[in-house]
Amino acid sequence: MNIFYFIAFLSVFFAILVITAKNPVHSILYLILTFFTFTIHYILLNAQFLAIVNFIVYLGAILVLFLYTLMLMNLNKESEPVKANFIKIAAVIGGGCFLVTIVASIKALGASPAVILKDPSLGLVKNLGKVLFNEYLLPFEVSSVLLLSAMVGAVLLATKDPKTV
């Protein structure tokens, strides 16, 4: 059996657990596992730079930030808000319809050729760095402004207003 189908099954399985787990902490832990399977997908596609960045940025920074935020709030299973059952059923039907539409349109496309690595060094740091700093130099610089503004915004929002305290 091909390793791709096994990893794809694990991705879908953990993704379903993320949205069905009652405890928010368990949700985050399942999300970590889901993103780890995504890292394996990137390695299978030989996108080594993205695999490392996904591992460091998502697993190391973003999900740890989620966990810290959750720990700051005193939440547990009892305080977890639950939606009414008919809304859940309607949501699952809506999402299912969305999925069926996309799958039907893929079927209409017909069979596609296999993903063949035309250039084995495509996803390596050396190759991506050349593309990033030649063609995409301006977006790269603009993204630094984006990160700065996000940092300023986060600090501004999260600090307490001294007048109201």
């Binding site: 390793i3 993704a15 596609l45 999925l99 799958v103 893929i106 596609s112 050729p113 296999a114 690595l117």
Partner: peptide
């Protein structure tokens, strides 16, 4: 191992995860 996977399988996987 990935050379035998059709591109459609990737679209399918991404569509499933997106729907979830």
């Amino acid at each position: 191992t990935i050379q035998t996977i059709p591109l459609n399988e990737y679209i399918l996987l991404s569509a499933i995860i997106f729907s979830i």
